[in-house]
Design a protein around this nucleic acid. Structure first.
Lengths: 144, 144
DNA sequence: CTACTTGCAAATGCTTTGCAGGAGA
DNA sequence: TCTCCTGCAAAGCATTTGCAAGTAG
């Protein structure tokens, strides 16, 4: 599964005449291994020897080509994860205590009805949908 | 409707031995009138003559007593709105272009099934739910 | 009088950017 | 060799905080 993802990212970058450099591959690998949204600091920790500015800059680049998305959590840190298309469609459990973010999926029937309802609301308000989020905000086991 | 809300806010503050001062009332009034989440700067603009630091400090105080919640939008600005209980349960349309945030509601049946599914997912992951969010991320009419 | 509040100014801290050197094609 | 990428250091900018004066109860 991993090679496919790297190929896809390389392709996305190529569309914008950018390269899939070793640094970028390290960042993608880190996010892939995590399986949950990571803060810039967590990405940096996982991708040793990549300076902070390169982490931020490359995450921004990967975001622009559509390989990475920013995730708004319940704390002050922006988090990053691989975009849908590279992974599956999922949602997040956000901990108000420690900021932790965990992935989860809705039952297909619920997902479908949410998708439909959200799209309808968007249409009514003149929005063009790009994606939707269903987040739960609460407290994880260790923060209760 | 307005007086009730002010009374409720005053009560929440009193529980924490804090006062419902004129400045705080101006902030609440501004958010009430807006009917959508406001950035700190927008709150300040609506509540003339309140210095920036007082806006931030009082929004933080109001958040702590449960009268206000922070809303994560699609841009870099945190937004604030009156908490549920003071208003109704609703969700947000977020514009990636200009950051605009618009309220919307799900059909009751969809809302109920989402609530159920989210709660189940939380339980499975050991999270205690405080609230959930259903956001649409896209582009508003003028940013398409 | 004893807290809680306010306002100014300065600090904090995540994130972004300028610039010079390095590397891929 | 031309463009993209990297790394360091410095800047940006929303948000927070210290402190002294003000005010409600």
């Amino acid at each position: 599964m991993a090679p496919e993802i790297h190929d896809t990212v390389a392709g996305l970058l190529r569309e914008f005449e950018q390269r899939y450099t070793p640094v970028r591959r390290r960042l993608v690998t880190a996010m892939l291994a995590a399986g949950r949204p990571l803060t810039a600091a967590e990405v940096q920790a996982a991708a040793r020897d990549v300076p902070q500015s390169s982490v931020y800059r490359n995450l921004a680049d990967l975001e622009q080509v559509g390989a990475v998305v920013r995730v708004a959590a319940a704390d002050e840190f922006t988090r990053f994860e691989l975009a849908e298309g590279l992974t599956d469609h999922h949602h997040h459990l956000l901990c108000r205590g420690c900021g932790k973010v965990v992935d989860f999926q809705l039952p297909p029937a619920v997902e479908a009805s949410v998708a439909r309802a959200v799209l309808a609301a968007a249409r009514r308000a003149g929005f063009r949908e790009e994606t939707h989020r269903v987040d739960l905000v609460g407290r994880c086991r260790s923060c209760q």
